[in-house]
């Protein structure tokens, strides 16, 4: 259960965003990606989530090259991006049940309970607040359980109470032997966490 990233480089719009990024994340560990705006936090997570092709480097999961054979790896992670990936004319429950049917494992009720969205689960998403939408989207992590969580700004628009709730869920995930990679501005106070500060990897220096 090891994710190894070596010499990863990223080019956007013919500009080097970062290069030579290396890290190893084992079961139960987390990686906190930090950096100023434009240092490529989102790009890094999107590269791991197979949404973006890196300009250089290798990613391997269980000793297998992810970039060559992504299919097995794709089943192992859940990615939370900036956008909420919710259909506004459907309710959170309908949204979650779609993803559960689409992805396979079905854990909707647990997800609704874990993120405390019971009361809003049957209202159309368009009538929800930003924080409620965020939680409904995060609930996908429990509804479609997976080994690796890739989280891009997971706690933005959550209030203190729900940040604690989310952090507890994240800790539980790691204790179960899961992995997590997250980009936040705020420290989530996870025990076994490595820090990756992208400010140190900008391409201009080389």
């Amino acid at each position: 259960m090891t994710l190894i990233v070596e010499n990863l480089g990223c080019v956007r719009q013919e500009r080097i965003i970062f290069s030579d990024v290396n890290f190893t994340v084992k079961a139960g560990q987390a990686l906190w990606v930090k950096g100023r705006n434009g240092t490529g936090k989102s790009s890094l997570l999107r590269i791991i989530a197979q949404l973006l092709k890196p300009a250089s480097g290798q990613i391997s999961w269980q000793q297998k090259d992810v970039l060559d054979e992504p299919v097995e790896f794709l089943k192992r992670f859940e990615y939370i991006g900036h956008l909420d990936a919710l259909k506004t004319s459907m309710t959170p429950r309908e949204n979650l049940s779609f993803w559960a049917k689409y992805r396979g494992p079905n854990n909707i009720e647990a997800a609704i309970e874990a993120f405390k969205i019971e009361e809003i689960a049957d209202f159309p998403v368009r009538s929800l607040s930003a924080g409620q939408k965020k939680r409904s989207n995060l609930a996908r992590l429990i509804a479609c359980p997976s080994k690796i969580w890739i989280l891009d700004e997971p706690i933005s628009s959550l209030d203190v109470h729900f940040i604690d709730l989310f952090t507890d869920l994240l800790r539980a995930h790691l204790e179960d032997g899961g992995l997590a990679l997250y980009a936040t501005h705020q420290d989530l106070e996870i025990d076994d966490v490595q820090l990756l500060n992208l400010d140190e990897y900008t391409g201009a220096g080389s």
Partner: peptide
Amino acid sequence: MAIDLHRYA
């Protein structure tokens, strides 16, 4: 430098 941008240009 790991990435050679000049290849393109």
